[in-house]
């Protein structure tokens, strides 16, 4: 994945990964479904935006919506097939579908540009009613835009989690059979959560495409799916709403800061992750949770 130049761009990158991880965490920690193929939806969002800019209309909102809706559409499709399952079965199915999407991106040259991907699209300006359009090429402007989008997404996810719908997701996570026996169509709720999660990941992917001005099939590879799982858990997403944000920060900083020093930053990242899984499986924010209950 491409490296960042400049601190503002770095900050935007963190926000984008945070969005991806928050969307993913809705599924993992709030519904109890582990997905190892979520990079597919991130990538579909990215390609959606890129293709809109290159083949249709250079428009910011349209590109983002197309990316988000395309990801949501495919998440709905896959979700409909796999919502009956859970646990490791579910995880393996997401892995299989994730790889299918990767290879489609890799092989379908005519549409996706194949291995070389899609490049050559800029950030369209942001139209604000009553004011001159905002040029998003400037890193600070893009950062502010990303920040606002992330805030909106976070508020929406927060409200969702605290709504009646959110409590059903929790029930499904903790005891799906009992949730069924209360009268909930649990398969529907799992499907809905999967689709929403896919949409949010797609939006993040679309933003990522805007950030970098390029899209590659690598965005959908299973190791990227593994990364978002890692980010989410590392920060403490399993126990805290903001865990994914922290995890995204750590990941991007390691990737870029350590990456500037040595090209072998992945080694450190892998080690960090191993240590966290072994010593503090609830992630960094999980540490604070323990101290809180100990008091």
């Amino acid at each position: 994945m491409p490296l960042i130049k400049g601190y503002t761009a770095l900050a935007s990158e963190i926000l984008i990964y945070a969005m991806f991880a928050l969307g993913f965490n809705l599924l993992l920690s709030y519904t109890g479904l582990p997905s190892f193929g979520h990079a597919a939806f991130f990538g579909i969002g990215a390609y959606g935006l890129a293709l809109t800019q290159l083949k249709w209309v250079k428009d910011l909102w349209l590109g983002l919506f197309v990316g988000m809706l395309a990801a949501g559409f495919f998440a709905a499709l896959v979700g409909a097939i796999i919502a009956r399952k859970r646990g490791v079965y579910f995880a393996l199915l997401t892995l299989a579908f994730g790889q299918m999407f990767f290879f489609i991106a890799f092989r379908w040259d005519e549409v996706t540009g194949g291995e070389t991907g899609l490049t050559g699209f800029d950030r369209p300006p942001l139209a604000i009613p009553g004011l001159p359009p905002l040029n998003l090429t400037a890193p600070m402007n893009f950062y502010l835009f990303t920040l606002i989008v992330l805030m909106v997404v976070m508020i929406l996810i927060w409200r969702l989690i605290h709504s009646p719908f959110g409590s059903v997701l929790q029930a499904v996570k903790q005891n799906e059979l009992r949730a069924k026996y209360l009268g909930y169509n649990t398969i529907f709720y799992k499907w809905a959560s999967f689709t929403l999660s896919g949409m949010i990941s797609g939006l993040a992917g679309a933003m990522f495409a805007l950030q970098h001005g390029s899209v590659f099939p690598q965005y959908l590879y299973w190791t990227e799916s593994g990364n978002v799982v890692m980010i989410t858990i590392m920060g403490g997403g399993v126990v805290n709403f903001f865990g994914p944000v922290l995890g995204a920060g750590i990941f991007v900083i390691l990737q870029n800061a350590i990456g500037a020093l040595t090209e072998h930053w992945l080694f450190l990242l892998g080690l960090t992750f191993i240590l966290i899984v072994m010593v503090i499986p609830e992630g960094i924010l999980g540490l604070f949770k323990k101290t809180k209950t100990a008091q």
């Binding site: 995880a91 190791t223 593994g226 799982v229 890692m230 858990i233 072998h264 992945l266 080694f267 990242l269 892998g270 080690l271 992750f273 191993i274 899984v277 072994m278």
Partner: peptide, 13 residues
């Protein structure tokens, strides 16, 4: 799964 994923990542590097 996650642990071995981390191991795979480090050892590959």
């Amino acid at each position: 799964l996650l642990l071995t994923f981390g191991i795979a990542m480090s050892v590959e590097e």
